[in-house]
């Protein structure tokens, strides 16, 4: 066990917090620091307030929901809203577990496929030169410059021609080829030293073996980034124009139907919003530092 030792330096450090003349970082003024702190506090509140309200409303009894002025935190914490939600769902003619399963299927297959397939494509783009490489990567970068809505109409035609209408693949397949993921993965792989690959080659490993046993374990932080970017997109998908069978509809669609209810459903709606919010946010909290690490290689020339 490590014992805490009071040394001369630790005392000095402690008191330096109260000493206005303590050694400051270079080029920082006290007034500037204070102004920036106030700014952060102000905008932080603006950013957090709707989220905190979403979370706290989910645990408020109905009478508190309509209280004015709105209370930031519930006085009597209740799980009634979640109970009502599960009852409401139990009464619908499609079992709720079915919607849940659909979303899990779309989200897990989509993110898994995306991580594997985008990494496979990123590896040669990052590490080798071959004919067609720069043209392909330029196309990928250009595709970041327009929103997916641009291709919505032809996508519908293509998907219906392939016969994927009313099939989860209609959502999964386009998501797998998301170009932002490939871009980030390729940039991240570029910082892996070439020596690692060279020495594996000397040992007689094939490209595929190098990819799966050396490269993939090294780019774990980038996996998490690709997962969260695609997860948030697939998690809130409602099937759009592609899925019309009720038993294939995802969770977000079912929850949206509930949310369109009247005022006595306000509590249930709050519970729904909370569920949709908490899953991606929790994932981000857990993997934040690795995700940020990935973005340090995101730069564009």
């Amino acid at each position: 066990m490590k014992k805490f030792k009071i040394s001369k330096t630790s005392i000095k450090k402690f008191f330096s917090y109260f000493n206005p003349k303590r050694t400051r970082k270079l080029n920082r003024s006290m007034g500037g620091d204070l102004a920036l702190f106030v700014l952060l506090l102000l905008f932080g509140t603006f950013s957090a307030y709707p989220l905190i309200m979403t979370a706290s409303n989910a645990f408020k009894p109905l009478d508190e929901l309509f209280l004015f002025p709105p209370k930031l935190l519930p006085r009597n914490i209740t799980f009634d809203n979640f109970r009502d939600l599960s009852e409401l769902i139990g009464n619908s003619w499609i079992p709720f577990s079915r919607y849940f399963f659909n979303t899990i299927l779309i989200t897990s297959l989509g993110t898994l496929g995306h991580v594997i397939i985008a990494s496979m494509a990123a590896f040669p783009l990052a590490k080798y030169r071959f004919p067609g490489r720069s043209i392909f990567f330029t196309l990928v970068v250009y595709s970041l410059m327009f929103a997916p809505q641009v291709t919505a109409t032809p996508n519908y035609i293509i998907i219906s021609k392939i016969g994927l209408i009313d099939n989860p693949s209609a959502i999964i397949l386009p998501a797998i080829a998301s170009s932002l993921g490939l871009y980030l993965m390729k940039q991240f792989m570029q910082q892996i030293p070439d020596d690692l690959i060279e020495s594996a080659k000397i040992d007689g490993a094939s490209e595929y073996r190098i990819f799966f046993t050396i490269i993939m374990p090294l780019v774990k932080p980038a996996w998490l980034t690709l997962i969260i970017l695609l997860f948030q997109r697939l998690w809130i998908t409602d099937g759009g124009a592609f899925i019309f069978s009720e038993e294939l509809k995802p969770l977000s669609y079912a929850l949206r139907q509930i949310a369109q209810g009247t005022i006595e459903r306000a509590g249930t709606i709050a519970a729904v919003s909370f569920i949709m919010m908490i899953v991606p946010v929790t994932f981000f909290i857990v993997s934040q530092s690795r995700i940020v690490e990935t973005f340090s290689h995101s730069g564009m020339k």
Partner: peptide
């Protein structure tokens, strides 16, 4: 290695732009 991504990318991003 690039084929699976490239096929999907062309089908759902590049070809649609031209089709559009």
């Amino acid at each position: 290695l690039m084929a699976p991504f490239a096929i999907l990318f062309f089908t759902f991003t590049i070809i649609p732009v031209i089709m559009s």
